[in-house]
Simulated assay, not measured.
Amino acid sequence: MTAHTPPTPPFRDPQLPFAKRIDDLLSRLTPEEKVSFLHQFVPAVERLGIAAFRTGQEALHGVAWMGPATVFPQAVGLGATWNTDLVRRVGDAVSKEVRAMRAGDERVGLNVWSPTVNLLRHPLWGRNEEGYSEDPKLTSAIATAYTHGLRGDHPTYWRTAPV
C-alpha cells in the first residue's frame, strides 16, 4: 500500500492567478478565521498550514515602538524641511530597520503603515503631527519621497510595502 499525498490546495499554487488563489483561500476559511484576520496580530490557521503573522507596522517616524531603532521626527517636522532627498533617506533607513527586525522575528511584517497623506487643514484634527503639510504639492512630494525610501530601489522587489 502506498501513502497518498493530498493535492496542493489552489491557494498555495503560485502558477494560478492571484485572484483564484485568494478566492480559494477565502472559501476554506471559517467566518471566525476571517474575522481574526482583521486584527494586527493574526493567529495561525493550523489546519490550512497558515502561520501566525502580524499584518503591518506603524512606520511613520521609525519603528522604535517595536524595539531598539532610530526615532525620526514626526511627519509634520519632516514636511517642514521641504527636503525630499532627506525624507527619502529617512524612509530608506526605516525600511532597513524593519528588515533587520524581521530577520530576528519572522512575524514582523513588511507591510508598513506609512506615509499619512491627509492634508493638515483643520487644527482640531487630533493627529495633525502624522501629516506633512496643509499644502497638497508639498505633501505629495514629501509622501512620494518617503514611499520611495520605504520601498527601496530594486526594480522588482520592494524592501517594504508602504500603505
Rank of each mutant, 00 (worst) to 15 (best):
L38A: 00
Q40D: 04
S27M: 03
R12N: 04
E58D: 15
L25C: 03
R12T: 05
E129G: 02
A93N: 12
Q74Y: 14
T144S: 09
L38P: 00
V94A: 05
L150C: 10
A19S: 13
L150M: 14
A69Q: 06
W125L: 11
L16T: 01
V63G: 04
S27Q: 08
P43H: 04
E106Q: 12
V63Q: 01
A141L: 08
D13I: 00
L78M: 15
A52Q: 12
R107S: 10
D85V: 14
T147Y: 10
A52K: 05
K137C: 01
V94M: 13
T2N: 13
T156V: 10
E129K: 13
R54E: 01
E129L: 08
K137S: 08
G126Q: 13
T116K: 02
D105Y: 12
R127K: 09
A100S: 09
L120T: 04
L38M: 05
T2V: 10
P6T: 07
T139R: 04
R47K: 11
D105T: 06
A93Y: 09
E32T: 07
D24H: 15
L48W: 09
I142F: 11
Q74C: 09
A52N: 03
S36H: 09
E106P: 13
M1S: 15
P9F: 05
D105A: 06
G152F: 09
L150E: 07
G149T: 02
P136N: 04
V98I: 05
V35W: 04
S114T: 08
A75N: 12
D92V: 02
D92F: 14
H148N: 12
V42R: 00
A161W: 14
I50K: 07
N111E: 01
E32H: 12
D13P: 07
W82H: 06
V71L: 14
N111I: 00
K20A: 15
P14I: 01
P6H: 10
V71Q: 11
V42S: 00
E97G: 06
A19T: 06
T147Q: 06
F11P: 06
G152A: 04
P73K: 03
V90I: 15
A145P: 07
A64H: 10
T116M: 15
A52D: 02
D23K: 12
V76P: 00
M66I: 02
R159K: 05
I50R: 02
P155R: 03
P136S: 04
V76C: 15
L38W: 04
V35K: 09
A44L: 13
T144P: 01
F53M: 03
W82S: 00
R107I: 05
